[in-house]
Design a protein around this nucleic acid. Sequence first.
DNA 1: TTGAAAGCGCTAACAC
DNA 2: GTGTTAGCGCTTTCAA
Lengths: 335, 335
Amino acid sequence: MASASVKDVAALARVSVGTVSNVLNRPELVAPETVERVTQAMEKLSYVRNEAARQLRLGHSQALGLITLSGGNPFFTDLATAAEDAAADAGFSVIVGNSNDRKDREAGYLSLFEELRVRGVLLSPVGDPAARLRRMRDRGISAVLVDTVSTDSSFSSVSVDDVAGGALAAAHLIGSGRRRLAYVGGPIEIRQVRDRLAGARQEVAKHPGVTLEVVDVGALTVQEGRAAGAVIASRPVSDRPDAVFAANDLLAIGLLQSLFINGRLAIPQEIALVGYDDIQFASASVVPLTSVRQPSALIGRTGVEILLQEAEDPELQPRHVLYQPELVVRESSAG
Amino acid sequence: MASASVKDVAALARVSVGTVSNVLNRPELVAPETVERVTQAMEKLSYVRNEAARQLRLGHSQALGLITLSGGNPFFTDLATAAEDAAADAGFSVIVGNSNDRKDREAGYLSLFEELRVRGVLLSPVGDPAARLRRMRDRGISAVLVDTVSTDSSFSSVSVDDVAGGALAAAHLIGSGRRRLAYVGGPIEIRQVRDRLAGARQEVAKHPGVTLEVVDVGALTVQEGRAAGAVIASRPVSDRPDAVFAANDLLAIGLLQSLFINGRLAIPQEIALVGYDDIQFASASVVPLTSVRQPSALIGRTGVEILLQEAEDPELQPRHVLYQPELVVRESSAG
DNA sequence: TTGAAAGCGCTAACAC
DNA sequence: GTGTTAGCGCTTTCAA
């Protein structure tokens, strides 16, 4: 049995296809009795509207695209959940893709979203897709950058002040007596990674005698954190940092695994540790993790709201919402 | 500027629309020189294929639907990532929805997927959508159940033996001297929650003198675990369990937060704790967590492979793949 | 209040 | 190797 179409429903209800369409979209224009008859026919045939046909006719879909940097990062799942809820309130669905920090994947999802004629896209960029996004905007697909500020500010953005967050972390570490800091993060192409480092550098520069070493990693994952930690743990004490600031909590948890669990280094006594994002697991880690908190759900919700407004009226001036991060101090840096 | 269509491309390249379609889908049928001309025209007009039109013509999309129980659970994000990779290998994309344990959400995504004419759906069911799925199969949308066994076995399934997993956890706890077990999990409608409990019960029944108490929670989240832990911690020592088996790691981590961090109960001395899923964070939690490991990525990949085969040939007999879980012992139960 | 008909962009069958 | 054309299922004028 193939799917029933409006035609089949119309035939069974003995009305025209136009009327069937009307009961679907503007039932107030149809006589109650007719509505009833059509509804029953739909029921009987288990009619399911063909979204592709509807969309073809309408010219665009009722969906939004979202590209996150990493599906495994709870920060992004929280953001995505909030975005979905906000979109659902307005009758939109959201299609999520994870670039996993890869430009080619980002480009792939952008292409998919264009083919799908989504109404707008929300993204945390890896590369610099501004040119591409501008082209998309010309055809009616607006974009809002989340968790990053646009390079050319012609796109709206919703983000958190990562430079301030980096400064917050470094200031805290220096304030509690640490002198040899290390920043573990990468790839450096990611704006968040760069900004958090820049903030830390600013703070370090204010304190002569304090040094900041950069440990570059390939991705913001638990695994990479574990690898970086193993390298740090294997260095002689004199050459080891006395504080590590990780670009996100996933990395920090990996560091915890190799520094504390495997390397048996005392945290925070030998090495203090600060992460970023304050994910749910941070407070329950081996050594509860000091972290820089970001309002993930708020970012997702606000992003969708702005996107929907711009989809409605493309002439709107771009807006830039910047939230402030907050330091949550726990044992990993309390010494 | 509106989007360019095949018509525009054809006009610019001075060929017919059929030829444009051919360079898109079967370029080997077209003269190289023509391919070149058409390609350049596409480039010039920034042509992007309209997926809705293509799909309308083809009768179905190149997408698969996936419904997970919880977006915040790393078990499902791992499963989803593997599913996406497997689908991508076959030229399919996957649209994920989270039911968050709610039947209405599950039904909502099923409707959306039907409207989208996905080729198949992969799901970890909340309710009992068998009837609905059968109707969908009649119209060419096959379904594979993941992380659960079909009630009527007419649908293929890829799952892990949860009864065995529950037994594994309980046997371990009893074997290390525990006598008053508590199972924390819910809602009981979820098959995984039920099966893990059943396995634990089987094991408990083999050991006279061992008791098993069930603490029902509203969802498999860190928050709910925290709430359940607070209740347990507030009970007098004589009335407290000496071991807790949590239906998943999220719950276990929440329990750790309220039992160990807030309640200052010694783990595993006063209460031993075992979780389920062995997510990445389990080994780095306050007290490294004993957990029952499931091959999440393998489940996702296998599920997609079966689904794709069935989409290809709907006459295929349903297959039931059952993986065995594995107990990973860590400190939370080592005493 | 309802019906008839055009057309969204694409693919595939068929003709040349 | 290329062109012509029908038609996928839907919404939306326009007329009755």
